[in-house]
């Protein structure tokens, strides 16, 4: 046995294999790449209004990341739980947190790449340009949002006993998040209660962060980053709880 390697070497192996496996996921191709790109181009061309191209591009980016980092990973984590992977990890010398960190990093990186792909297509098709600072600000929001969703997916997968339960639960979570947000339409004309609800909608904060990044609105961006950080910490706490002894 080779024990001279730092643990990071093995975390890298887990990371690169997770990346490879995740990239082969057909749900990724459809829900996080094809559909957001199709939606961005289709709706952007259909509703040909000034400023809408950026709105729909960021909305679709956020949706693609939500679908991958949350919905797809709920199913991946559930499948691993059901097959006893997390139980088996208790037998190995690799701490569970190192494994979770490695696979989560891979999923977060894929989310970031998907988001950036949608952004690039939107920028090319609609001809808007972004400064390097804006791209960095958007990237940071993507990473924070994806982290929160991935950690939340560990918690939700722990509540579900089967794929059908996971399907219902993820739909019950994602649909209100999407519909009570300004991902596809402005909320200015929406009923007051929806506008109030949107203040408590983590997905809306994610979209606001992306849009603030596009326009380099530092105060809006910082507010969104702060909320996303709080969501990330809560999600991490819930994820750790769901992976506790005898719960895996």
């Amino acid at each position: 046995m080779n024990t001279n390697f730092l643990n990071t070497t093995f975390m890298n192996t887990v990371f690169s294999l997770s990346l490879k496996a995740a990239a082969r996921e057909p749900f990724l191709l459809f829900w996080s790449i094809t559909m957001p790109i199709g939606g961005t181009i289709g709706l952007g061309l259909l509703i040909n209004q000034p400023g809408y191209s950026v709105q729909i591009t960021t909305g679709m980016m956020a949706m693609g990341i939500l679908f991958y980092a949350f919905t797809t990973t709920v199913f991946s984590v559930l499948a691993q739980r059901k097959r006893g992977v997390y139980k088996l990890l208790r037998v190995t010398p690799m701490p569970l947190w190192q494994y979770i960190l490695s696979v989560s990093s891979a999923w977060i990186l894929i989310s970031l790449l998907c988001g950036m792909l949608v952004l690039s297509v939107g920028a090319i098709v609609f001809g808007f340009s972004l400064s390097p600072l804006a791209v960095v600000m958007i990237g940071i929001v993507c990473i924070l949002g994806a982290c929160g969703y991935v950690f939340f997916s560990f918690f939700i997968s722990g509540l579900c006993k089967s794929e059908s339960q996971a399907s219902i639960t993820t739909n019950l979570i994602t649909l209100p998040l999407l519909l009570c947000s300004s991902a596809f339409y402005a909320l200015d004309g929406a009923p007051r209660w929806i506008q109030i609800l949107s203040y408590f909608n983590p997905f809306q904060w994610f979209i606001s962060g992306l849009r603030s990044g596009c326009s380099i609105d530092a105060s809006g961006w910082l507010a969104s980053v702060g909320v996303l950080l709080v969501i990330l910490i809560v999600s991490l706490f819930l994820a750790v709880k769901s992976l506790g002894f005898n719960k895996i």
Partner: peptide
Amino acid sequence: QLQSTPFFEGYTAEENLKLFAALYHTK
């Protein structure tokens, strides 16, 4: 080896071997 066969979803046989080896700090 537990009663279930806990392979990693989406990984080939070869990748599962690599991954399990990594879990045991073996490359």
